[in-house]
Simulated assay, not measured.
Amino acid sequence: MDNKEISTLIKVNRVLFLLFSSLFFIAVLSQIFLAGLAIFVNPIYWMKHTTFIHVFGFNIPVLLFLLSYFGKLPQWSYIYVFGLISGVFFMYFTANFTNILRWLGALHPIIAVFLVILSFLLVKKTTLFIFQKRSSELI
């Protein structure tokens, strides 16, 4: 494999990283919307809220971890992905252990806001990293 193929492969992995981090951001917003529907419209949406998390919960962050490795992204990408994985873990924790400590349930929407902010910042930082013109490329 020559350098051009490696460079192209790295670029593809970086674009896929951006795509899946954007998908995660949209999925977290959708989860909040489904929770709002369950509270204000019809409780039937709780089932959709709890089922939807299994589609993207840990799957996308693990994929992001692999793409950050294969895309040779900087260390900040690993920190963000670790934050997403931790956030999803704590979301599961606060949803499933409220029988033991009732106040844990109150942390669930706060962690959701944390995930929205963190995933948005990841999309923004990745977009800037991938598409910013470096001074060496301008010449």
Results as ranks from 00 to 15, higher is better:
residue 17 F to R: 06
residue 63 L to T: 11
residue 123 V to L: 04
residue 69 Y to P: 01
residue 35 A to P: 01
residue 99 N to L: 03
residue 16 L to P: 06
residue 51 T to F: 07
residue 84 L to C: 01
residue 115 L to K: 07
residue 65 F to P: 00
residue 52 F to R: 07
residue 24 F to D: 04
residue 50 T to V: 01
residue 23 L to F: 15
residue 69 Y to V: 07
residue 35 A to F: 02
residue 56 F to Y: 15
residue 109 P to V: 12
residue 84 L to K: 02
residue 68 S to A: 14
residue 111 I to H: 08
residue 71 G to C: 02
residue 3 N to V: 14
residue 84 L to D: 02
residue 95 A to K: 13
residue 115 L to M: 13
residue 129 F to W: 14
residue 120 F to W: 14
residue 3 N to H: 11
residue 126 T to G: 00
residue 130 I to H: 07
residue 66 L to I: 14
residue 122 L to M: 15
residue 32 I to F: 08
residue 120 F to D: 03
residue 121 L to E: 12
residue 82 F to W: 06
residue 118 L to Y: 12
residue 40 F to T: 10
residue 76 W to D: 01
residue 102 R to E: 14
residue 127 T to L: 09
residue 84 L to N: 01
residue 116 V to A: 04
residue 32 I to S: 09
residue 105 G to K: 10
residue 97 F to W: 14
residue 85 I to N: 02
residue 87 G to Y: 07
residue 25 F to V: 12
residue 112 A to C: 11
residue 113 V to E: 11
residue 30 S to F: 12
residue 127 T to M: 09
residue 20 F to W: 15
residue 28 V to H: 07
residue 109 P to H: 14
residue 83 G to S: 12
residue 76 W to F: 04
residue 18 L to G: 04
residue 80 Y to R: 00
residue 14 R to Y: 09
residue 39 I to N: 03
residue 18 L to R: 12
residue 136 S to E: 15
residue 70 F to A: 02
residue 138 L to Y: 15
residue 124 K to R: 15
residue 114 F to C: 04
residue 108 H to P: 06
residue 80 Y to Q: 01
residue 115 L to Q: 11
residue 23 L to W: 07
residue 51 T to M: 09
residue 100 I to F: 05
residue 42 N to R: 00
residue 33 F to W: 13
residue 48 K to A: 12
residue 56 F to Q: 05
residue 60 I to T: 04
residue 131 F to I: 15
residue 32 I to D: 04
residue 69 Y to I: 10
residue 68 S to D: 00
residue 107 L to D: 07
residue 31 Q to D: 09
residue 21 S to W: 07
residue 61 P to C: 07
residue 133 K to R: 14
residue 37 L to P: 02
residue 67 L to E: 03
